[in-house]
Write a protein that binds this DNA or RNA. Structure first.
Lengths: 247, 247
DNA sequence: CCGGCGAATAACGTATACACTATTCATGGC
DNA sequence: GCCATGAATAGTGTATACGTTATTCGCCGG
């Protein structure tokens, strides 16, 4: 990513919301392999929230020495995925409902700004077509009741839009917060009702973008996120009601 | 900071926009001392933009071994203050006008969200009084033509407001971006005209906060930042016109 | 039986050592 | 004279070693 950050995130990836993956990290330095490997395990639940490991144990797990593992964990801690408590271990952070709310509050603010920037820059024909195509597919998935696939495409949609904003720092921070809400977001996929409202709102957003109407785009995105975030928090509350109070 | 980040930023500091300082870092671990020391030197210009040093040289400069210095530089690179180019050195980042624009675009989006949150939470009497007091002093400084002091209080004002938002992650990210624009902001202080318009806008913001009017607060903050950022970029462009094209 | 004090231990923070590789400089060929 | 090729070099990435200190466990006293 041509971002201000140093450590390569994923080579040649210009989009926020990179779905967890280990593609193409084989020849990266050990520190970056450790970072991506751990991030992947955390986001996919292979390292469950609450899991606590010592530096030495993590190093053994990854077959590395403590040095690159330390550097990776510092980065992951900065990004909010783990908590480092010296002599108590490195813990995969679990999130309370309030944590998720805070994360979404930042995420949505950033995404709104991204959409404003896209509207200001204008939408190229190819990008517009791509979004229209995506929305068609999302609507078909909705009718077919395939919420899981819809959810993936929803990520893709917002990621694609944000990716057009032209502000790498914004994308970088967006990606950081997106990572933080990835697990809770996945948790509630099976609970989602048919996202007909989201589909409508997506159309409104793209229309505003195509028209280059910054204010309309801001409003559409803001309302979309406000409603979607409220729904996500509600579903998460239900989900957390049976079980622990953390995700 | 009771933030998601691991490395102590400044012990017991609950505000964003911590003015560069080395208070109370004496007994922190070497890695954190290195981080704060370098950050301080960069923000205050003691390490000028473009300065390039090798890991070994930095370690010697700080009288530490490479390990804690490396960990500090990784963090500073993540925060956008330095660029690490292996075998070419660690360079204090200099910013183009476009960089500053990108930074301000993120910063203002975050600050707008912070203000919305404050409005939603409501303004305690003590905080309201404090802001009123600050605004009085800023207006007196304006009349007295003491722009430098006004600028400091302006930081204080926005920092205080943001600090009331109740979202530590937001504050953390806000602080990161605030650091990035600190130097360019300082550069143009001597060029600023009397900030009478800002003073008026501050009153509007606080009124909306006191009324708990989220939408009015958002609008007031948005307009304030849009105008102030535009002014800052204009002044910076002038400033950069005579000299290099980077800050 | 519980609580506090102290020694043992082990985890971490930092320093250092080592090996790899990118860069540079010099030499030789074109 | 310039470019390319190779060896020298030095900076970094990683491993490891070491010292400090927080935590834990056991023992003793209350």
């Amino acid at each position: 990513m041509a971002s201000p950050r140093s450590g390569a995130t994923r080579p040649g990836d210009r989009r926020a919301r990179s779905r967890p993956s280990l593609q193409g990290i084989a020849d990266l330095p050990a520190r970056d392999r450790a970072y991506h490997d751990l991030r992947y395990r955390i986001l996919t639940g292979r390292l469950a929230p609450g899991t606590t490991l010592l530096e030495t144990e993590l190093a053994a797990l990854l077959s590395l020495s403590r040095t690159p593992v330390r550097e990776a964990t510092i980065r992951l801690a900065e990004e909010g995925l783990i908590a480092i408590r010296p002599r108590h271990g490195i813990t995969v952070r679990s999130l309370t409902l309030n944590d998720v709310r805070d994360i979404l509050d930042v995420l949505s603010a950033l995404e709104i700004r991204a959409v404003e920037l896209v509207a200001r820059r204008g939408l190229a024909r190819a990008d517009h077509d791509r979004l229209l195509h995506l929305m068609d597919r999302m609507e078909r998935a909705t009718e077919a009741g395939d919420i899981a696939q819809w959810s993936e495409m929803d990520d893709d949609f917002h990621s694609t839009v944000a990716g057009l904003c032209g502000n790498d720092r914004l994308l970088s921070t967006l990606d950081e917060y997106w990572s933080q809400q990835y697990r809770p977001r996945m948790m509630i996929v099976p609970l989602r009702p048919k996202p007909t409202q989201s589909n409508i709102e997506h159309r409104r957003i793209v229309e505003a973008l195509a028209a280059g109407d910054v204010e309309a785009a801001r409003l559409a995105q803001q309302q979309h996120r406000a409603r979607a975030d409220r729904q996500q928090l509600d579903l998460l509350r239900d989900r957390l009601a049976d079980g622990a109070d953390r995700a």
